[in-house]
Design a binder for these strands. Structure first.
Lengths: 192, 192
DNA sequence: TAAAAACCTTGATATAGATCAAGTTGCTTT
DNA sequence: AAAGCAACTTGATCTATATCAAGGTTTTTA
């Protein structure tokens, strides 16, 4: 399980054997069965989580029980709840596994230690935060500007693999449309 | 103009006189008249921009000429286009002044120098990036989950001052609804 | 200070997408 | 392998919001 994380890191920066030992020493390995929660709303989230295998979703539940998917995380993506982690307040999010999955958890203090000890690791993480922010901006743009069809096309464009990997009604939820609408949009898109 | 930036910093971290001199030495001071562009799409954005005075908007234009407002930035907020800055590619965004404004620009190399030389400054900036990311997540949630009325209420909640400071049709654009709908929503909200 | 723009509101109408409902297919679980 | 559940589709209808249009108000500019 650690090898995947190690490869992910070594593909981007150069670290010594000892550096990897240090990282490994603070990793918490966790296997999740399909449908198992990694985080439930109301809990306080304490980690940074790296997905080695499988796929998770991060969602919020509204007052009517409606689920709204904030994001998916597959292998080599990060997940968690930055807001709860930063503020120490209970999370409004739920994270659960869409498939049997394997994740690595690193507590906030350990993570900060790594960033302090390993400048290259710190840069790597910073780059990811930057990229996530940019992705969020683009998602906001699509949410406030696009039609249902444009939203779906841009999803396929950006996440071609997820398009077939996660249930359609979850993609609909991610896009902020109903499953019925997505089904009809797909029929249209298939025609052209 | 620099005093505002200095106060903003000193309210959050402690720096020496020399540190401020260093910061000041890389600041580019710029005054903008109402409607003046700070960035036009197609240009490559090279700075981090801190708003000392006034208010700007950041927006994208779609193929039909429709404007979609990504964000507002008033005094003591940051603005710019992180994506263009990071990738070096032409920006898809426009930034212009809604009021006569004053901004401080810091080029990317200078900014990185400051972050490297002044760890506290680096932490400060990191905190801002984190908070912006969290704000983006919350905006995504509202965009995919809320009705027009809920969107407007949450805007008033989050930005009570902007509610009266920027034109209504721009708030509508920010929320992803039409100006007419916003006008009607406001009438409803006023009743209750 | 008058003319021109920009802005906001209100009404009438249109429509994209939501909701409700039923049937089908395809996974899980025992 | 059957039963039960979850996922997808399709049709009918409804509704929140968009679009189109016009008038009134405020702000800008000459």
């Amino acid at each position: 399980m650690f090898e995947i994380f190690q490869k992910y890191i070594s593909d981007q920066i150069t670290l010594s054997e000892e550096d990897y030992e240090l990282i490994k020493s603070v990793c918490i390995f966790k296997k999740l069965r399909k449908r198992q929660y990694l985080l439930q709303d109301g809990d306080i989230w304490k980690f940074n989580a790296f997905v080695c295998k499988g796929c998770l979703r991060n969602y919020r539940v509204d007052e009517n029980g409606g689920e709204h998917i904030m994001g998916f995380s597959k292998e080599c993506w990060w997940t968690g709840d930055r807001e709860s982690l930063l503020t120490g307040k209970p999370s409004a999010n739920n994270i659960d596994a869409l498939e049997d999955s394997e994740v690595i958890l690193i507590t906030k203090p350990s993570f900060e230690m790594l960033c302090a000890q390993l400048p290259a690791f710190n840069d790597l993480i910073n780059g990811i935060l930057n990229k996530s922010f940019i992705a969020s901006q683009n998602r906001i743009h699509s949410a406030i500007s696009f039609t249902a069809e444009q939203k779906y096309r841009s999803f396929m464009d950006k996440y071609p693999d997820l398009t077939h990997r996660v249930p359609q009604h979850m993609i609909a939820s991610f896009l902020g449309i109903t499953p019925e609408t997505l089904s009809r949009v797909r029929k249209e898109v298939a025609k052209k």
